[in-house]
Design a protein around this nucleic acid. Structure first.
Lengths: 250, 250
DNA sequence: TGCGCCGTTTGATCCACGTCAACCGCGAAA
DNA sequence: TTTCGCGGTTGACGTGGATCAAACGGCGCA
């Protein structure tokens, strides 16, 4: 249903444009526009007018490529991976609607990881130079962008904690609780969802082998904490899962 | 010895002030002022006029405390640690001269880790609100600050890689090579230095137990790659150490 | 409808690192 | 100078997760 203010927009192009805008995006409360006023939103809309479809298995950018934009996930699901010279690679993050990709590239002007779609997806392109420009004029935007970067750092510390001092069960529990919360924030069920990534990708992110991930899933299921079949997960006992992720080994 | 330009500054306060300024700080090429012109540097000096001494073992800030400033290490050495409810804690980083601490706090306005001095140290206080203000007016400062945050993210990805897919020897090699480079960038010897942290702190950072760290040090020494006694390290074969950190297990 | 592939599950075995314990050595305090 | 305590080293042993291997099952494609 078109909003009253859009009713007199007669050109299809204009309508398309409207659909692209942050101001009408369902994810604006999770994404870059958080805290912006109506007028400010309009200015951000002028900056973010390009979108791009990314087919499953293809990448937005790859390590080594020139950095010049950030990407906001509009729809779909992504992973980022870094790789060592010897071919080993590791998943460093999973990204869903409203989350920002590409901040790793600012420091060196080159991307340092690959951002790969785990399903057919769509991203909004945020030219970084213009974002800096605009955030020089818009206090709120500037501050919110700093918050987003800071949270990425805190998230990474959480993963370091997980990789450095948690056992396999605790890691998977933490992973599932985190996914659950993020689905909830996006209006999806926190207790029932489809995993977009393989066991191997989960393992890579958690510093485990796929067999271990599979075994821990089975153990959780045996203990009645959740049910899994393939990529479909239903969490039955979130409190127990949550308790597990901060518990001593013995 | 006072520099010629400071010779006619008669008030002790003024001299003190001069010593505090970024413009005369030996670390300015590594720290926040990177890329600033003379006039810009002066403006930054007006912002960063407070310093603080931190005794060994005490902290600049602790998790949960209100965030309102960043801290640049002027002298000394720090670790940051996060802790789980159950008491487990983990070192998330080591910081030396010219590096910025506290960016984790921006996102939630509360610090999320403790920043503890590993030796008597000194930090410059950078009030964050004023930094945002100034970086709205100064392009270069804004961009450099974004780069610093981005590099923190990339550094964390490196640690995640290390924790998630490297063996103990590779981890310690990577750690030593990293330290070596950072000492070099600060004009110290890249091949001979004193560790400011204990084996336990190294282990915590690398996801290993102190005994393992100790054993790997001994193994490296037996193989002639370095010599260690207590906290004194002399690296004999950097190339071999470097080769080790990107090698397959077998 | 049947075939083949890839992701997953499960079992048997191995090994890198953790755990537990003893001892050493340096530096601070008495 | 001796003592004490903490950080570090080293050894013996245990174990969580890796590795190797086999089989399953859902899905795309012929």
């Amino acid at each position: 249903m078109a909003s009253p203010s859009a009713a007199h927009a007669v050109q299809p192009l204009s309508l398309d444009r409207l659909k692209t805008a942050c101001s009408t995006c369902g994810l604006r409360e999770l994404c870059l526009p958080v805290g912006l006023s109506g007028e400010e939103l309009d200015r951000l809309d002028n900056l973010i007018y390009l979108r791009k479809s990314i087919k499953k298995g293809t990448s937005i950018y790859r390590a080594g490529e020139r950095f010049d934009a950030l990407y906001a996930v509009r729809a779909g699901f992504f992973k980022t991976t870094v790789l060592l010279e010897d071919g080993r690679d590791q998943v460093t993050g999973f990204y869903m609607g409203g989350e920002l990709l590409g901040m790793d590239g600012i420091g060196t002007e080159k991307h340092t990881c690959d951002a790969v779609a785990l399903e057919d997806s769509e991203v909004c392109i945020i030219p970084f130079g213009r974002l800096e420009e605009l955030s020089r004029e818009m206090h709120n935007l500037q501050h919110h962008f700093h918050k987003v970067m800071s949270r990425e750092i805190v998230r990474d510390h959480g993963v370091m904690m997980l990789l450095g001092s948690m056992r396999a069960e605790e890691r998977l529990a933490a992973f599932l609780v985190n996914l659950s919360q993020r689905f909830l924030a996006r209006g999806y069920s926190p207790s029932e969802f489809y995993l977009r990534m393989t066991r191997e990708e989960i393992g890579s992110y958690l510093g485990l082998k796929l067999e271990t991930v599979s075994r821990v899933f089975s153990r959780f299921q045996d203990e009645g904490m959740l049910s899994v079949q393939q990529k479909h997960v239903r969490i039955i006992d979130i409190p127990r899962l949550r308790a597990l992720m901060g518990q001593r080994p013995c």
